[in-house]
Computed example of a mutant assay.
Amino acid sequence: MPLFKTIKPNKHTTIYVWKIEESFDALSKGMLLTDRSKNRIQSMKSELHQRGFLSVRHLLKEAGYCDNDLFYNGNGKPHLTDGKHISITHSFTFSAIAISTNEVGIDIEKNREKIKIIQHKFVNFERGFIHENDDYIQQLTVIWGAKESLYKIYPYGGLTFKNDIDIDSFQISDKKTTGYIKVENWDKTYDIHFHQVENFTLVYALDPATND
């Protein structure tokens, strides 16, 4: 299908969401890819991952870019040739990108029971505010997505979700909270926004200085 959703959280930032319903061949048709991207697709064993990769290129096109405008640094962080910030995510049948003139991170995750099993790997401070009367899986998925979004913003890699990133108290109905990266020389606060997209949780982190 075409573009599923566009979100404009502020005048500096646009988020594009794609629902991946097309076949690999349909997504490939007319799509110009760099040799690096062609090699990456060939190395992927899962067609679902291949379709996710291609759907991101369609999102780039929706935003006015092409595959050649995207490159990665040594830590695997994506960049655009015009200097704007970009963050990329895909999970099962959804993909999304966030493009901004300032720091931005994005994540989309399917709401799954499995997250209860791995929560000890990323929940620390947040244990004190998880609400029993709220959707437990969604709460955990927001926390994971928020930490993943902040991890993507941090340019140097190596953060631990449990010890280096904190998320403030929230309820699912709030649709927003605050997150913190707390490491040496990078003690910053970010606005966190989250939405339910069918059975997925979309989370993005924004520099509060640009949230207008």
Rank of each mutant, 00 (worst) to 15 (best):
E22Y: 15
D82E: 05
V203C: 03
G74H: 15
R112H: 13
L3Y: 01
F200N: 07
Y180G: 10
S100I: 08
D212G: 08
I88S: 04
K121S: 09
H49S: 08
L60E: 02
N73K: 05
L32R: 09
K45A: 07
R40P: 10
Y136K: 09
Q196P: 14
V123Y: 08
N124Q: 02
F4D: 11
K29P: 11
D82C: 13
T177Q: 04
T6L: 08
H49N: 03
S169K: 04
F129G: 02
Q50H: 05
S173F: 01
N124Y: 04
K84D: 03
Y65K: 14
A96L: 06
I172H: 10
Y190C: 00
F161Q: 07
D207R: 09
K188R: 15
I153S: 03
G145D: 09
L80N: 15
Q196I: 10
F94E: 03
N185E: 10
N73G: 05
T101A: 07
V203A: 02
I137S: 00
S55M: 14
D135Q: 06
W18Y: 06
Y136T: 02
A205F: 13
Q42L: 11
K152W: 01
T14K: 04
A26D: 15
G128P: 00
K19Q: 13
G64D: 11
K110V: 10
Y204M: 08
N211K: 06
Q50V: 05
L202R: 06
L32C: 10
V183T: 13
Y180F: 13
K61D: 00
H90F: 07
I130L: 12
H195C: 12
H90R: 06
G179W: 05
Y180D: 13
D135G: 11
Q42W: 04
L70Q: 13
D134R: 01
E148W: 15
I86S: 05
Y65F: 04
S149I: 01
I108D: 07
E103I: 12
A146E: 04
K182E: 06
S43M: 09
H193W: 09
G52C: 05
N102A: 03
N102Y: 00
E198K: 13
L80F: 14
V183P: 01
E184F: 01
S95Y: 06
Q42C: 07
A96K: 06
T14R: 09
T178G: 14
I106D: 01
P2L: 05
K38P: 11
M44E: 03
T178Q: 03
E103L: 09
L27F: 14
K175S: 08
L206E: 12
I99H: 08
F53T: 09
I88A: 01
F170G: 13
L33A: 07
V17F: 08
K162N: 12
A26I: 13
Y154W: 10
D135A: 04
Y16K: 02
M1D: 06
P208K: 10
K45I: 09
N102D: 00
K38Q: 09
S149R: 07
I15G: 03
A26Q: 15
I117P: 01
E113P: 09
T81E: 02
I20V: 15
H131Y: 12
N111I: 14
H58G: 07
I99V: 03
V56S: 12
